[in-house]
Design a protein around this nucleic acid. Structure first.
Length: 427
RNA sequence: GUGAGUGUAGCUCAAUGGUAGAGCGCCGGACUGUGGCUCCGGAUGUUGCGGGUUCAAUCCCCGUCACUCACCCCA
């Protein structure tokens, strides 16, 4: 056997219903809020992420699946969606096309990381982006939508956390203030934090080492270093969230890892997910579009981890398709007629199963039982001769006969009375 | 990239330095045109892979791969 690649997973039939539910809700919510779907390639030029995601990030430095293709170009599997969304927005001048430049996309991302709970090398994200709106009302709407998405999935233990990292000026001043506050205590911090102090002081807030916490707790807060404009924007965002009645926690320690974030950042944290507990995260990136060669347009968005959402879904969520009917043929002569019966049921929009080999009726019944089909349509030599079909309700064991040419109408009537739902039934 | 734990049947797990067993599942029969319950019977393993120690390794040692969790990073 040739095994699958480390950090990748097969989403098996037993759990695919949960995925379909997450995807269904994701699409429904996005469409309701006026987002248009876009599908971008999984391969892009390496420089798109070097410039977009940021040369200093670990994603770009050591986690990309990058290679030189046969034409000599540097290519990479996308590690995140935002730069691709920006590229497509710019490349196709989408702001000319759409009433609002609000886009969403669903698809796989790739990062060469050590797998653990909620983290894989191929993982899937819902990515949502809005371009060209600086007003804080869009921050509020995006965050409200993210929150609505999670709660519509029935995940009710999630926590919304927000912060503002300010504009480039605020960040520069804040970083300097952090280093100054740290002063000579840098060597007391853990190795990772010493490295962060050199590369990106804001990330010190991500530290989990207990010994470092007293020092970190004493550090200044980003909120106190916001310029007037950024402060006003953040206040306005909070007013919007309050107006929506959303519960949130402002955390000055929420500093997101990607270089492009400005002002608003937010995350929704799930419970019981282990260390990788961010269901979704995002923020504003007011200079990214221009930085990637486009017009000077603001941007804001978030990415949600589908694996984590599936993990956070309640036990009974999802569901599998069970057949409306299982056709059982008895006797060699019945098989051709049974196959036509199955075809006719399917043509009428019903889900029908039928065996392939000339198995015994018993064996077919067992398979029918295992399939979960709600009824078995028996077509044996007796029925064939009388132009009938025996219908056995698996739940009760009762059976009755119906004329062959009435079968589909008969079944459709049963479903009509029960508000049939495309054959998909919750477990 | 770092650390810890774990790899035995399809699944969940036992076992012993003397070449493996249970439960569930699967297949068949009792019921030769009828599932679920019951009873009876049956099949399946290169004990992750490679090497070492040993008369003998699934068990001990080394390496390697995979999985799990955590660090790191982030969805």
């Amino acid at each position: 056997m040739i095994p699958g690649i480390r950090g990748t997973r097969d989403i098996l039939p037993a759990e695919v219903g949960r995925w379909q539910q997450v995807e269904r809700v994701a699409r429904a919510v996005c469409e309701r809020y006026g987002y248009a779907e876009i599908r971008t390639p999984v391969i892009e030029r390496e420089e798109l992420f070097a410039k977009g995601t940021g040369e200093s990030t670990d994603i770009v430095q050591k986690e990309m699946y990058a290679f030189t293709d046969k034409g000599g170009d540097r290519i990479t599997l996308r590690p995140e969606a935002t730069p691709s969304m920006v590229r497509a927005f710019v490349e196709h001048s989408l702001e000319q096309e759409l009433p609002f430049a609000k886009l969403y996309s669903l698809g796989p991302m790739f990062r060469y990381e050590r797998p653990q709970k909620g983290r894989y090398r191929q993982f899937h994200q819902l990515d949502v982006e809005v371009f060209g709106v600086t007003d804080a009302a869009v921050d509020g709407e995006v965050i409200e939508m993210a929150s609505a998405f999670v709660s519509e999935l029935g995940i009710d233990t999630a926590e919304l956390v927000i912060n503002s990292v300010g504009c480039a000026d605020c960040r520069t001043r804040f970083s300097a203030a952090l280093l100054e506050a740290l002063g000579e205590r840098v060597p007391e911090l853990c190795g990772d934090c010493q490295r962060r102090a050199r590369t990106n002081p804001l990330r010190i807030f991500d530290c989990k080492v207990p010994a470092d916490q007293p020092i970190i707790d004493a550090l200044p807060h980003s909120e106190d270093f916001l310029c007037d404009a950024c402060r006003a924007h953040f206040d306005e965002v909070k007013r919007h969230l309050d107006a929506y009645g959303l519960l949130y926690r402002v955390s000055h320690r929420l500093v997101r890892g990607l270089d492009y974030y400005t002002r608003t950042t937010f995350e929704i944290l799930g419970a019981g997910l282990g260390a990788q507990n961010a269901l979704l995260g995002g923020g504003r990136y007011d200079h990214l579009v221009k930085r990637l060669g486009g017009p000077d347009r603001a941007g804001i968005g978030f990415a949600a981890g589908l694996e984590r959402l599936v993990l956070a879904l309640s036990e009974g969520a999802g569901g599998t398709t069970v057949a409306d009917a299982f056709v059982v043929a008895i006797g060699d002569a019945s098989w051709p007629a049974a196959r036509i019966l199955a075809r006719d049921l399917r043509k009428a929009g019903l889900t029908a199963l039928i065996d392939y080999d000339g198995h015994s009726s018993k064996s077919q019944m067992k398979r029918a039982n295992r399939s979960g089909a709600r009824r078995v349509l028996i077509l044996g030599e007796d029925e064939l001769a009388r132009q009938q079909v025996t219908i056995k309700e698996m739940g009760t064991g009762h059976q009755h006969t119906v004329a062959r040419d009435q079968v589909t109408a008969h079944l459709l009537e049963i479903f009509h009375g029960r508000h049939r739902d495309d054959g998909i039934h919750r477990a």
